[in-house]
């Protein structure tokens, strides 16, 4: 089994619900975003447009972050292909951050709250117990939720159903069918990481290319 995600850019309205749901689920401190949206302005008037690209850890099949990790803290799970970090093994060398082309990793130097000078809120006090300073963090496809039979928080909370989660190894899974039918593509495939997050083009392809 290889878990993966398909993000349909035709459906994405860049409402940041995925980002907020992820922050809520994982109680990440300020300046730590496991899920985020890249925004770029392209072209010039009258042909200008904004491009939104929801991002998260791509849980690559050939993860460069795993190869460079000197302690084995970052590893890919055999059972489902999810790339995870063992915080007890991480020394905070940040080699994985320089190796990741998708900017999916964050180094937690110290814990601070969302309200400077007012200490941590009760929510933050509880939520931050899951975080370890001096280590690197990232998305793990909401492993806790998967264990309960639920989808990742960003998938479950997307109001336009732009995100689909499933098994890329199963040719009949919804993610595999979407990739095949709508010409799903990976980001930066030339780097050889074979990411498990696919995007469906924002513009519908002409019939002959489908």
């Amino acid at each position: 089994m290889r878990y993966g995600m398909v993000i349909d850019l035709k459906r994405c309205i860049s409402c940041y619900a995925c980002q907020v749901a992820c922050k809520s689920e994982n109680a990440t401190p300020p300046a730590v975003l496991y899920a985020w949206a890249f925004r770029e302005e392209q072209g010039e008037y009258p042909h200008a447009r904004q491009v939104y690209l929801p991002m998260l850890c791509n849980h690559c099949d050939e993860p460069s972050c795993v190869d460079v990790c000197p302690t084995g803290a970052t590893h890919k799970r055999d059972e489902d292909g999810i790339v995870v970090i063992d915080a007890d093994k991480c020394v905070g060398c940040r080699a994985c951050m320089t190796a990741c082309p998708y900017h999916a990793r964050y180094y937690l130097d110290h814990i601070r709250g969302y309200y400077p000078g007012e200490g941590l809120t009760p929510y933050e006090q509880v939520g931050y117990e899951r975080h370890n300073t001096g280590t690197v963090e990232k998305c793990n496809f909401c492993l806790d939720r998967l264990g309960q039979g639920k989808e990742p928080a960003c998938v479950a909370n997307c109001p336009t159903v732009a995100r689909t989660f499933g098994d890329l190894d199963d040719p009949q899974s919804e993610v595999s069918l979407l990739i095949h039918r709508d010409a799903g593509y990976q980001l930066l495939p030339e780097l050889g990481n074979n990411p498990s997050v696919y995007y469906l083009p924002a513009e519908r392809l002409p019939k002959e290319f489908r």
């Binding site: 991480c90 020394v91 905070g92 060398c93």
Partner: peptide, 10 residues
């Protein structure tokens, strides 16, 4: 390093 005491793990 974030955790120099674990450097041997490298």
């Amino acid at each position: 390093l974030g955790h120099p005491e674990r450097a041997w793990k490298m």
